[in-house]
Structure formats: structure tokens, C-alpha cells
Write a protein that binds this DNA or RNA. Structure first.
Length: 301
DNA sequence: TAACCGTGGGT
DNA sequence: TACCCAAGGTT
């Protein structure tokens, strides 16, 4: 009878409050948690944090917000500058989408980051996680914030599994079950569960001795059974990949203030055919403009 | 929907 | 050293 559906329906509010108590002391002092950091800062931070470690984001975020304190400031600069400022944070399409996002906010939302989840979801580069993270952490609303950390904590502490199953909309229900009705308290649980997954209940080597809910953890109680869910896709090898080729090309474009000759780009690695494919992809994505005769540059520069 | 999209830190 | 993994989103 204690199947997953029952567990999900019941949830465990005590788990959430225990994590919140721990968070009050253990929370890291991160820039976006400062009082009055602002919704624009929160939004930029959340986009930079997509698949990117906190320590790499912090300096880039500070530089970004100093240069572009509001969405309209960013919208007034060409996309090429956004891609340059993005530097080597990775997934540079995020820089382009953040620029588009800023333009939409400036033109359609009076230069104010929307506080409505659906309005946020309609913006480029903002999905289920980021929309709710902004609504919760910038505007103090009550929504389930589900990221890789919360999914892992719930998989272990609540469901008794070593790892989270592939993402599913059901995850929103699972996280909601941990949230207290009180709105202010719910924001702390959201932040606390994320923090627990980030610094204690980590993927590789969880520090169960430092975990505030070890005594309530279903995975621990079950004797740490190995993961037995569906086989999960491994990230493709990076060395020799198209992604690496794209990165090399984009690094050249960032470095140059004038169009770079095609021949120069196609000589960045042994496989010219791959570089050509990568270059076409960058142009298709809007990360590069140009043609074989006049050379290539960042967009809108 | 499964595949794709960068770069670097941790083990 | 390789490999895993990272405050995901889009197509």
C-alpha cells in the first residue's frame, strides 16, 4: 500500500521544516540572497546558474549587473556584447536569450521583471525551473522550485532511491508536498532543500554525517540501495565533439572586433568539415553572422 | 522526446 | 586519469 502514489500524496511537512531550520544556520552567503538584490539580478543569476557551478557564476554576475543594471540597459547594447560579456560561462545561447529576455521585459513589461509564473515562462530562455525560482526568490511567492538538487533530495529522503529518475512534471507535486502553507516559510524550504542538495546531499559523495534529515531519510533507512531506475543518458564525450568545435570558433569571434576570415576559422582544428558544420550551426543559432566571402562576426556588432 | 547545447570543477 | 556532473531550456 505504501506505493509511490501514496507517499507523494502524503508528503512530509516535517522534512521541510527540519531542512528550513538547518538552512537558517548553514546557508551560504550568496550574492543573490542579499536583501534588496532585485528581481533583475535574480533572473540573471538563475540563467547563469543553468548547468553552471555557483563559483563560476559569481564573478560574471557581478560584472554583468554592473554594466547592465536594468533590462533596458542590456537591451540597448547589441547581442554581440552580451555574448562577449558571457565570456566562457558555457552554453552561449543563454547570453543571446538573456538579451532577448531583457528586450521583452523592457518593451513589454515596463522594464520590470514579471512576477507572474506564466508571464515568466513566456520569456525566452526561461523554463519551469527559472520561472518559479524568480517568482519565489525575487517575489517571495509560494511555488515548487524544482532543480537537480531538489529532485535528488526528494529521490533519496522521501522516495528512498539513490538518484532521481529523469525529470517529470510529477516532481512539482513532490516538491509542493514539502512546502508549508505559510508563504514566507515556503520560500525558506525551497531554498533550503536546494542548498541541502548542493552542499550536503551531493550526487557523488553525500555527507550524511552532516545531514539535518539523516534520521528521516528513506534512502538511508533502506540501507542505501543502488539506483535501479531507467538507464539515464550519459552526456556525450566533449573531446572532439561539435560542441568543442563551436566553442573554439566562438572564442575567436569574441576575441575579434572585425569579421574573421572563414579560412581562419576552418583552421582552428584538424577536422575542417566539422568546423564548417559547427560554423553553420552557430549562424543558425544566431550566435554568428557573415558569409564565406566577408568573414564571420558576433551578431549585431 | 531524445538529442543537443560549453566549460570547468570534483573525485 | 577519465569520467561524472553541474540552480536547464529548446527543438
Amino acid at each position: 500500500m505504501a506505493d509511490a502514489a501514496v507517499v507523494r500524496a502524503l508528503g512530509d511537512p516535517a522534512l521541510g521544516s527540519a531542512v528550513a531550520d538547518w538552512f537558517a544556520d548553514a546557508a551560504r552567503d550568496l550574492p543573490w540572497r542579499a536583501e534588496g538584490f532585485g528581481a533583475w539580478g535574480v533572473l540573471v543569476s538563475e540563467i547563469m546558474l543553468q548547468q553552471t557551478q555557483v563559483d563560476r557564476v559569481i564573478p560574471r554576475l557581478a560584472a554583468w549587473l554592473e554594466r547592465w543594471p536594468t533590462p533596458a540597459d542590456l537591451a540597448a547594447s547589441p547581442p554581440s556584447e552580451a555574448v562577449r560579456m558571457w565570456d566562457r560561462l558555457g552554453y552561449p545561447r543563454r547570453a543571446l536569450r538573456l538579451h532577448a529576455c531583457a528586450t521583452a521585459i523592457a518593451e513589454e513589461h515596463g522594464n520590470v521583471v514579471p512576477d507572474d509564473v506564466d508571464a515568466l515562462l513566456a520569456l525566452p530562455g526561461i523554463g519551469d525551473y527559472t520561472a518559479r525560482a524568480v517568482a519565489v526568490f525575487a517575489y517571495r511567492q509560494r511555488h515548487p522550485v524544482v532543480d537537480t538538487n531538489t529532485r535528488r533530495v526528494i529521490a533519496r529522503a522521501v522516495l528512498g532511491h539513490a538518484e532521481a529518475a529523469p525529470p517529470h512534471r510529477r516532481d512539482l507535486v513532490d516538491m509542493t508536498a514539502l512546502l508549508p502553507e505559510d508563504v514566507a516559510a515556503s520560500t525558506v524550504v525551497n531554498a533550503g532543500v536546494m542548498e541541502l542538495g548542493a552542499i550536503v546531499c551531493t550526487a557523488r559523495s553525500p555527507r550524511c554525517d552532516a545531514c539535518p534529515i539523516a534520521a528521516r531519510c528513506a534512502w538511508r533507512a533502506a540501507g542505501y540501495p543502488a539506483y535501479d531506475g531507467p538507464v539515464r543518458q550519459r552526456q556525450a564525450r566533449f573531446e572532439g565533439s561539435d560542441r568543442q568545435a563551436r566553442g573554439r570558433i566562438l572564442a575567436e569571434l569574441r576575441r575579434s572586433e572585425v569579421p574573421v576570415p572563414a579560412a581562419e576559422l576552418l583552421a582552428l582544428a584538424p577536422d575542417a568539415a566539422q568546423l564548417e558544420r559547427a560554423l553553420d550551426g552557430l549562424v543558425a543559432d544566431g550566435l554568428a553572422t557573415g558569409d564565406p566571402d566577408s568573414g564571420y562576426a558576433l551578431p549585431g556588432s
